[in-house]
Amino acid sequence: METLIFALFASLALGSSIVVVAHKNPIYSTLSLVVTLFSVAVLFVLLGAPFLGVLQILIYAGAIVVLFLFVVMLLNVQREEMPHSGQPGQRVAALLGAVVFAAFLVLLFWRAGSPQGQPLTEEFVSLKALARQLFSTYLLPFEIVGLLLLVAVIGATVAARKPPEVEETASKEAAP
């Protein structure tokens, strides 16, 4: 049963991630990224991390992908795409590099053998142990990440704002 679910969602993740990379239209890429993220969330649950699975759906599929979709539609980029296709060797080189890289990774994991892992215990799956570690051993990084998110919000607002001189000239033009 577990193997069946793994096979289903692993193939779903692989297929939709290929669509993410290969599709010409950024909107379809973003939407199939949702499928990939959802499949990976299911795999998180299979691996005994239900909290991270929920978090993945909430944060990634819920917030980040919506942000992406918003920007894609705001900028209306799909007509810019692909009429002129860069250096000719670039695509071949990247594909070759990815294949070689994947082969090395596979080799690495193959040599590590195929361990069965610890059996899932109630204690491992429960939120309590994770929360205890997060709020004791990793309290300082947790606070720093909170600060980072605050800085990111401020930085994004400043970066996406209209430059002030444009606003001034626009208001001058509008005034008379």
Binding site: I18, V21, V99
Partner: peptide, 14 residues
């Protein structure tokens, strides 16, 4: 567990 690692390697390469 190594199946998950292989899948992650493939996703990363893509």
């Amino acid at each position: 567990v190594s199946w998950y690692l292989l899948l992650a390697a493939a996703l990363f390469a893509i």
